[in-house]
């Protein structure tokens, strides 16, 4: 007994180190699986507040550029609106709309890591929930992962765990959008069958299979493509429309039919 106590006393620093290392690695591995990184995220009260304060100060610096961006977007949307032929068919009853949109601003962005997360200044109080889609005026950005009272963290498409349904705009062939963590302006589209004809410069948009994003949200254009190891699918490098290093205003999209879709899919799966 005496020896055990002596041993512990002698190696107490080493044991403390091993213990803390285990704790840290435990947290890391635990949050590798989806939706468990709830403890470590920058949307919590204190971190959110500090980021918000710094955002309040720095947001004045590029107001002019941001305003220009928003005006350009408004112009584009008005063009679409005025040129819409059948105005009578437009539904104005909000209960029949299948997507709700709210706006937010990025208070913390990162793109240099393996798993990048973005923090936005909208949270539970603005009825933001996990699994809502986040887009900008140029294209998609990511999916809401954790929500606190006033803030939310968004899993960026520049995250090696991100997996989003995407398709070719002109042929409707769909695949998965992933990121190999190499450069911040390209992502990869995989699982497109070999028989699909591809051209450099083709547009990639979000697919209809996703219950998070609406169909046809722009993502990027084909930069280059080659076959994967099995020689049966294309591996496409997509250069993003979004400048991921410079994001300020975002829109949070919610599919009001999402629960229904998920329920239906679950029912179908359990029948198999």
């Amino acid at each position: 007994m005496q020896q055990i106590i002596n041993f512990i006393l002698r190696y107490k620093n080493f044991l403390l180190y091993i213990f803390l290392m285990m704790v840290a690695i435990g947290f890391t591995i635990q949050s590798h699986s989806y939706h468990q990184s709830t403890f470590f995220n920058s949307s919590s009260w204190i971190t959110g507040n500090i980021y918000e304060t710094s955002f309040d100060i720095t947001s004045y610096f590029d107001l002019r550029k941001e305003n220009n961006k928003l005006v350009n977007e408004n112009q584009r949307l008005r063009l679409l609106l005025f040129n819409k032929k059948d105005t009578l068919a437009t539904e104005l009853d909000s209960t029949k709309m299948s997507y709700t949109i709210s706006s937010g601003q990025v208070i913390k962005n990162s793109y240099a890591n393996q798993r990048n997360y973005i923090t936005i200044n909208k949270g539970e109080k603005d009825s933001i929930k996990p699994d809502m889609g986040v887009i900008t005026s140029d294209g998609i950005l990511g999916i809401v992962e954790n929500v606190s009272g006033n803030n939310a963290t968004v899993q960026s498409i520049l995250n090696d765990r991100s997996n989003i349904n995407a398709k070719l705009k002109n042929t409707n062939h769909f695949g998965s959008l992933v990121w190999n963590a190499e450069t911040y302006n390209t992502v990869q589209l995989i699982d497109i069958p070999r028989l699909v004809p591809l051209v450099v410069g083709d547009t990639i948009v979000t697919g209809a299979m996703s219950s998070i994003f609406p169909e046809n949200i722009p993502i990027g254009t084909i930069k280059q493509f080659d076959l994967d190891k099995a020689k049966s699918f294309w591996r496409i490098e997509v250069s993003l429309f979004n400048d991921m290093t410079n994001i300020k205003n975002v829109y949070i999209v919610y599919n009001t039919n999402r629960e229904e879709v998920l329920e239906l899919q679950e029912k179908t799966d359990s029948n198999d």
């Binding site: 620093n13 840290a24 890391t28 949050s31 470590f40 971190t47 913390k108 990162s110 997360y117």
Partner: peptide
């Protein structure tokens, strides 16, 4: 050692890096 762990952990809270800052700082 305890203090260094806390330091790493506080950086982790801000940068959404799970606990890898804590692990490397404690090392």
């Amino acid at each position: 050692i305890g203090l260094s762990f806390l330091l790493g952990l506080s950086i982790d809270f801000f940068s959404d890096t799970m606990a890898i800052n804590a692990a490397s700082t404690v090392t």
